[in-house]
Simulated scan of single mutants.
Amino acid sequence: MKTRSLVNAAIMLAIYMVFFVLYYIGILPTIMSILLPIPLIIYSVMTEKVSDMIWLLVGCFIGTGLLGSVYGLVATLNYGVMGAIIGIGMLKKWPYWQRLLNASIISVIAYPLMIYVLSGIGLQESMTQMIQEVFAQVQSMAVLPEESLTMLTTMEQSMLTMFTTLLPTLLLLIGLLNAFVTDKISIFILKRMNYKLPTSGNIQKFQLGATLATVYIGSQFLSLFVSNHIINVILMNIIMLLNTLFLVQGLVVAMTYFKSRNQKGFGIFMIFLALMSSLSMYISILGVTDAWFDYRERFAVKRS
């Protein structure tokens, strides 16, 4: 490293450690988890060298390991590596959504480790205990008839099955949301520092493509005939993840339609109404069919 790069690395490491201390002692942990990856992202753009950024990441592991022991190492595995991946994505000019998805994958590994370090039990067991405690409190609040107790028991089992089965997808979506917010804040800061950045993704161009739409439909079809439990769990996670992403795509398509008709306010109202009802399923279907037929291009042609 050159002298200037070393100075910048020292500054970014100091900022990272301040964020970690605040996160470690529980001061605004949600905000700190968003801010923790930012020093690595900024340093990546400043140095323009992946190797230098990797050395900074190593420094973050050493610093948080000395200060927070195993918890510090796991926290950096989650948020530090996320920042490193986003930074590498900016340097390598990865497509915007690929950059975020790659960064979010680390949460599937790191978040369960973090829960285990904190509580001494696995994430799945921790969620099971939490759900059981919630339902136990509901039952203790009032004397319920037998039918209500049976319904609560059925609901509890359904929630336990859903959360344990779809846990990887839930973790991936949480990581994706964290990466999205962190990326946006980093881009804002870097623009203020007058750094030239690759074009960030425009949500109106969010497009998963025909291949993922085919995988989504194929997974639903296979889930009807496959009896193997492990394969079914994998298929359910694929369906859950793609359904959520196609819901986002459907929302984008719907808003594009209403904007092309100069009815943005009415569109927001209709979309909100659909999301608050069972019609959200049809928005996902709209996203799936858009992957094949690209409605937004048709809206643009009609408007012109």
Rank of each mutant, 00 (worst) to 15 (best):
M17P: 01
M17R: 00
V18T: 08
F19Y: 09
F20V: 02
V21P: 01
V21F: 14
V21K: 02
Y24K: 00
I25D: 03
P29W: 00
P29E: 03
M32H: 03
M32A: 05
I34C: 02
L35W: 06
L36A: 05
P39G: 06
L40E: 08
S44Y: 11
S44C: 10
V45E: 10
V45H: 06
V45N: 07
M46R: 09
T47Q: 04
D52P: 02
D52Q: 10
M53T: 15
M53P: 03
L56P: 12
L56T: 05
V58E: 04
C60D: 09
C60T: 13
G63R: 00
G63N: 02
T64Q: 02
L66Y: 09
S69C: 05
S69M: 14
V70T: 14
V74D: 02
A75N: 08
T76I: 12
L77G: 12
N78Q: 10
V81N: 07
V81T: 14
G83Q: 06
I85C: 09
I85W: 09
I86K: 07
G87T: 09
G87Q: 08
M90R: 08
M90V: 13
L91I: 12
K92A: 15
K93Y: 12
K93H: 14
Y96I: 13
Q98G: 13
R99Q: 14
R99F: 10
L100H: 11
L101Y: 12
N102P: 03
I105T: 15
I105Q: 01
I106Q: 04
S107R: 01
V108H: 01
I109K: 00
A110T: 07
Y111C: 02
Y111R: 00
Y111I: 14
Y111P: 04
Y111F: 15
Y116V: 03
V117Y: 02
V117C: 01
L118E: 12
S119H: 10
S119D: 06
I121Q: 08
I121K: 02
G122D: 09
Q124C: 04
E125V: 09
M127N: 13
T128L: 11
Q129N: 12
M130E: 14
Q132F: 07
E133G: 02
E133S: 13
V134P: 00
F135Q: 01
F135H: 05
